[in-house]
Write a protein that binds this DNA or RNA. Structure first.
Lengths: 347, 347
DNA sequence: GTTAGCACTCGCACAATAAGAGTGCTAACA
DNA sequence: TGTTAGCACTCTTATTGTGCGAGTGCTAAC
C-alpha cells in the first residue's frame, strides 16, 4: 500500500510546516508556500485520503491537519534525507564539546549539554556502563591506624576508592595480606561477577583476618563495586521545554518535569534500547508517560562494545534530520575520544 | 513606632490566612474566622492604617490585603513563635533522613530531599566546604607502567584520587621519591594553600624528576585539589513549585527554573550568608531574581566550624515557623552525624 | 472608639457576537 | 477521470458586554 509521489510530497510539506510552526496545517498554506503546482482543493482531497490512511489527524473539523506518529515514522524511514553537517558546523560542535573537558566522564555530560543547546531540546546521556570491565587488582592503603583506603583498579585503568573505617587497628602486614588475597580471588573477574564471589572461605585458617575482612572491608568493597557499576544519567536543557509550544500549558510542563524526575524510569528505558541511532516516536513508546514524546538515542562505543547512550527527548514534532545528525556526530566523537585515550598507540 | 496589640493581632491573622490560601484577605474573612471580637469595619480601619505603614498592600482597590515583605519580617522577628516539633515528628524525620544513607555526602543530599518533601518547597544543600582541611600526605600508586593513581589524604581522613597518565614510564622508586617530596612540601597546608605552593624548585637537582612532576603530576594534583575544594550544590523538589499558586503562570515557572539552573549564582548566594538560621524575605534579597522569593538557610557544623548549608527557597508566602523548625532540626542532626563519625570517642 | 449601612470599584466568570481559518461537497472543466 | 472553483458549513478564537460577588472607604449613628 504505497503512497503516490504526490501524496508523499504533500505529507512532507505538511510535516515540514508543522515542525516549523507547531500549528495545524491547512490546504491553502501548503499550496501557497510549497511549490507543488496543485490547488488547495486537490490538496484537500489528498489530505482527506492521507487522513483515512492514518498519516494525518484532525484536531477538530475546521482546522488544518497534524501529522500522526505514523507519518513521522514514514518520514524518518523513507522521506527524510540525512542532514550532512558542514565542516564548519562540525568544527564548531567539536570545539564546544571539548571545551573545559578534563576527564572522560566529564565529556559525556558536556556532550549532553552541547546537544541540548544545539537542538533546543532536553538532552540526556548515560555514562559508560562498566559491566564488562575486569578487576585488575585491589589495594588497601593505610591512612591512619584505623582508617584504610580500599582501592579497586580495573584493567581499563579506571580506579575507584572508598575510605574504610576499621573497628580495630590493623597492621600494614595484615592489610597487605588481605589485599593480596583479594586480588588473587578477584582479578580477572568482571565487576558484576565480583559481586557474587564468596571469598570468605579463603580466610578459613585465619579467623582474625576473616573477621576483619568480613566486618570492615566487605561492605566498603561492595559499595565501591556498586558505585563503579552505577551508570550516571545526565540531563541538560530541561528548561528548554518552556520554549516549546507543546508545553506552554502548565500541566503539560509539570508532567514533563515530573517524568524527568523519575530518573530510574528514564535510565531503565534508555539502557533498554539497542545499538545505533534509535528514533522512537510518540505512541511507539511502550510507556504511557513517553507517548507524547519522541526520543532519539545513539550509542557510543569503547573497543567496539556499546557502552553508553546520548540522546534527546522532545515533542514528536522535532527536526528529526537535524537531531539524528547531531546525535550521531557527537557519539562518533565520543567513541573516538575513548579510543585515543584508552589505547596507547598514539605518539 | 510600635504597633498596637490589636494591629499585631490583625496582621498576624492576615498573614496566617494569606499563607494558607494565597488569596488577598478581606476584612470580613478576618472577622469571621479569627475571634478578635471586632467588626469588619473596625478591621478595615486598622487595615488601612497598616497599609499606610507599609505592612500591607493592595493588588487593586476592591480586593483584600496582602502582607508585604515588611510584614513577614515583623512576623518572623516578633510575632512568630517557634513551632516545636513533636517527638513523633522528630523521630519520623530522623528516620527518613538516615534511610539509605551510606556516606556523609549522601546525607546532605538526603537531607535536602527530606526537607523538600516536608515543606513542599524547593530545598537545596551545600556539601561541606573543605577550605580548612589540611593535607596529611600524598601517595603515588603505580597501576601500570605509565599509569599512576595520585591519592591525596586529608587529616580528616577524607581521601581523593585521580588517575594520571605519564608521558614516559616511571619506576616505583621515582614515584616513591616524588610522593615523599610532595608530602614533605604539602602536609599541614590547607587545600587552598596547597594550590599556591611552588615546589618545583625542590627538584632543582633532579631535572628528570622535575619534568615528570611538572608535566604529569601537577595538572592531576591541581585538578584533584580543586575537586576536593569544590562544594556540591544539591537541589531537590524543584517540581514542587508547580503546586504553588504563585507559579501557576508558565512564565513565572520558567523564570524560577531558569534561576535555579544558574547553579553558580545560587552557590555564591548561599555561601555568602552567615552562620545560623537566616531568613531572607522577598526584596531583602540583593539580587533582582530572588526578590519574589524567600530563602531560609541554616548551617551545619563540623568541629564547631560552619561548613555547609541547608535550606529552602519558595514564595514569600511560606510557613516560616514550620520551615525554620524543620531546617534547624535537620542541620542539628547533620552536625551530630558528623561528630559521631568524625570523632573516635564512640564505643 | 466602634459599628452599621451604603455607594462605589474592580476583577472575574459567562454569554453573545463576529471574524477567520479550514474543511467537505458539488459541479464544472480539461 | 483527475483537477479545480465555489460555497455552505463548522469550529476556534478574540472581543465585547453583562452581572455578580467580594471588598473597600466613607459617613453617620451608637
Amino acid at each position: 500500500m504505497d503512497l503516490s509521489e504526490r501524496k508523499l510530497k504533500i505529507l512532507q510539506a505538511i510535516i515540514a510546516d508543522f515542525v516549523r510552526t507547531a500549528e495545524p496545517v491547512g490546504s491553502r498554506t501548503i499550496s501557497r508556500n510549497y511549490d507543488l503546482g496543485i490547488s488547495p482543493a486537490t490538496i484537500r482531497n489528498e489530505m482527506s485520503d492521507l487522513e483515512e490512511m492514518g498519516y494525518l489527524t484532525h484536531p477538530h473539523t475546521s482546522s488544518g491537519r497534524v501529522p500522526s506518529a505514523k507519518a513521522y515514522r514514514l518520514y524518518v524511514n523513507e522521506i527524510m534525507e540525512k542532514k550532512e553537517l558542514t565542516q564548519e558546523e562540525k568544527d564548531a560542535i567539536a570545539q564546544r564539546l571539548y571545551e573545559n573537558v578534563s576527564e572522560l566522564d566529564n565529556l559525556i555530560e558536556r556532550a549532553a549539554h552541547v546537544l541540548s543547546e544545539i537542538t533546543s531540546l532536553t538532552a540526556f546521556a548515560l555514562s559508560p556502563g562498566k559491566e564488562q570491565e575486569k578487576l585488575k587488582y585491589i589495594n588497601l592503603i593505610p591512612v591512619d591506624e584505623r582508617t584504610v583506603v580500599l582501592m579497586i583498579v580495573a584493567d581499563s585503568g579506571e580506579v575507584s576508592n572508598t575510605t574504610v573505617r576499621l573497628d580495630k587497628p590493623a597492621s600494614e602486614d595484615t592489610l597487605r595480606v588481605l589485599a593480596k588475597n583479594m586480588t588473587y580471588n578477584y582479578s580477572g573477574k568482571t565487576l558484576s561477577e565480583a559481586l557474587k564471589v564468596d571469598i570468605i572461605k579463603s580466610f578459613r585458617e585465619d579467623a582474625e583476618a576473616m573477621a576483619m575482612f568480613q566486618n570492615n572491608i566487605v561492605p566498603g568493597f561492595i559499595r565501591t563495586l556498586e558505585d563503579m557499576l552505577n551508570v550516571n544519567l545526565y540531563m541538560e536543557g530541561l528548561t528548554n521545554i518552556f520554549s516549546i509550544p507543546e508545553y506552554s500549558d502548565i500541566e503539560k510542563a509539570r508532567h514533563f518535569f515530573e517524568m524527568m524526575d523519575r530518573k530510574e524510569d528514564i535510565r531503565r528505558k534508555l539502557i533498554g534500547t539497542d545499538d545505533g541511532i534509535i528514533v522512537t516516536i510518540g505512541g511507539e513508546n511502550q510507556e504511557a508517560e513517553f507517548c507524547d514524546c519522541s526520543i532519539v538515542t545513539a550509542t557510543y562505543h569503547v573497543d567496539g562494545r556499546m557502552v553508553g547512550k546520548l540522546g534527546v527527548i522532545g515533542p514528536t514534532r522535532m527536526k528529526y534530520d537535524e537531531v539524528t545528525s547531531v546525535v550521531e556526530f557527537l557519539t562518533d566523537n565520543i567513541s573516538k575520544s575513548f579510543m585515543i585515550t584508552e589505547g596507547d598507540e598514539d605518539e
